[in-house]
């Protein structure tokens, strides 16, 4: 669960980790019927609709006003969003 919390970027307390571990175990136990089901030959449904090829034309539409965009940000500087230092490169 600690690894999952790291993946999800949730700084949980030890108490929260304990609580969620128990509760998630209960939900996963309930889901054991799904996990155990023989679904050989059954394709997955990712989407309830059979739509394909939904496309738009390559036409420019107005962008947002930068002042409005940056006013919503917790921190900004020089027309950009400001964030604490980044320790690793993007993967």
């Amino acid at each position: 669960m600690v690894h999952v919390a790291v993946l999800a970027r949730l700084a949980l307390t030890d108490a929260e980790i304990d609580e969620f571990t128990g509760q998630l175990a209960a939900v996963l136990e309930h889901a054991a019927d799904v996990a155990a089901l023989d679904t050989a030959g059954v394709p997955p449904t990712a989407h309830p609709l059979p739509l394909v090829n939904v496309l738009r034309d390559d036409v420019v539409r107005p962008s947002l006003d930068r002042d409005e965009v940056l006013a919503a940000a917790p921190a900004a500087e020089s027309g950009r969003f400001k964030v604490p230092r980044i320790l690793g490169d993007a993967p």
Binding site: A8, L10, A11, E16, F20, L24, V83, P84, L87
Partner: peptide, 20 residues
């Protein structure tokens, strides 16, 4: 760093059911 900020923000900003 930014990862610590993410964790703190999301831990404080989301309620228990959302975190769960």
């Amino acid at each position: 760093d930014v990862t610590a900020m993410y964790g703190a923000t999301r831990a404080a900003g989301f309620g228990p059911e959302v975190k769960r």
